[in-house]
Design a protein around this nucleic acid. Structure first.
Lengths: 240, 240
DNA sequence: AATGTATAGTTGTCTATACCAATTTTCTAA
DNA sequence: TTAGAAAATTGGTATAGACAACTATACATT
């Protein structure tokens, strides 16, 4: 169960072990987990190490502690189901709008500081820079610039860029996308952006930045998108 | 600076001490904080205790660690998980920010066409209209107008509106929130909104509209919120 | 019946120490 | 002068033990 010789930290092993039990349903909402001392004794590790594992799950919201009583499985996480890991194409299709894409530029450039940070590579490393205009039923909906680390991707034929980048990454490169994190904030359209999107300069737009990861948190893509505010709404459905 | 005799935990004293320095601007984004060993020696406490303080601030997103380099003050923007079915209060607490709420108005009005559509009731039916200013550590963060169908809710005491509406619905009314759907779009602050949020008129803001449902898709709440764009960043993590 | 008390078990806080891994800095030899 | 080696520094993981704060329970006292 716990392998002390493994290079994987003990606390992490325990953490994932507990997580699995919760996700499998062996431990349900409200169930107590074994006490810290109990687990420490059982796996022959120190209590502080157990605490480190439990702490992380508490921070993730999977467990709740109660002084003097014990630690319990938290209420089911209230999370995203619908807004899955889809890109623009899938998103549009779901709305019944025909997605389109117009390639603006395709280059290999040196990574800027910002890009290198998001992709976890060195500043100056080669990256693909792909600028595209995303269309919905033929109209410009978003201006998107993607960066992909060259060293993690052998080659990108320009043809493939017309469709979904995700499909390309998964199907052609055989890489499995694991997770993505994105931020959203309101902004104004710059001259370039307003020109691309055929809107007035200074119009309200949504600035979306997303980093996509493979297994082991290896970044594979960093995207900065400008969505026009008058035509595109972000929809999220949340379910208990 | 650190009082070992105080009933307030040492790690908490240090944590708040660092937090204050960051919020005061003594420590700016990107600045390194003293190393763990350094602080341990300076305050004559153990390194593990220092780590406990630092850990909490890292979890809050105020600090970032870098092995071999040090611990640094993080970029400051507040990030809000997009996909969780939590209200404003819960969100703020999770960030370690004290949520506040200022009741602007509380009325029973006739539902407009738009409101009635969202709540699946007839136009002109009675609805509660609750306008609130949501505060984070005392500062205005969002201006929010909620609509709840009167016929599905027996009564709302004004006192309860100060805190979480969700808690009120679930705990006091015994109704279980099942799902919610929300849209996000960029906009400009109107005169009223900019006044409420103490920002310039025309500043970029995020318009969030959410409808919350009980079981069987019975709408129980329709909310229109204006989040200030300079202090908020919506964040969504997506996982396969 | 209500209240107090003792106890065992739980998490919370804290110390002191040790070694590992990543990075930066300093020194050294070519 | 410079490239590489070595040392110093930093956060990461882990141990063992101690006492405090809190909860639930059982039992005794009033």
């Amino acid at each position: 169960m716990i392998n002390k010789e493994s290079p994987i930290p003990i606390y992490y092993q325990l953490q994932e072990h507990l997580k699995t039990k919760i996700e499998n349903g062996e431990l349900k909402s409200g169930d107590p987990i074994p006490s810290e001392r109990e687990m420490a004794e059982k796996y022959e590790i120190s209590r502080m190490t157990v605490r480190q594992a439990v702490n992380n799950l508490v921070n993730e919201g999977l467990l709740t502690r109660s002084k003097g009583r014990g630690t319990f499985v938290a209420d089911k996480k209230i999370e995203q189901p619908l807004m899955k890991l889809t890109g623009f194409s899938e998103d549009m299709k779901r709305r019944g709008i025909e997605p389109g894409s117009k390639l603006i530029s395709f280059d290999v450039i040196k990574a800027s500081k910002k890009v290198s940070k998001h992709l976890n590579i060195n500043e100056g490393d080669s990256v693909y820079q792909i600028s595209r205009l995303r269309l919905g039923d033929g109209d410009p909906m978003a201006y998107e610039v993607s960066y992909l680390p060259e060293k993690r991707i052998t080659k990108i034929p320009e043809d493939n860029i017309r469709g979904s980048l995700y499909s390309f990454i998964e199907e052609c490169l055989g890489l499995k996308i694991e997770r993505a994190i994105q931020t959203l904030e309101p902004s104004f359209a710059t001259a370039l952006e307003s020109d691309m999107l055929t809107i007035e300069k200074g119009s309200p737009v949504l600035l979306l930045e997303r980093t996509t990861f493979l297994h082991d948190d290896v970044p594979i893509e960093y995207v900065k998108s400008i969505y026009r505010g008058d035509r595109y709404k972000f929809i999220a459905e949340m379910r208990r």
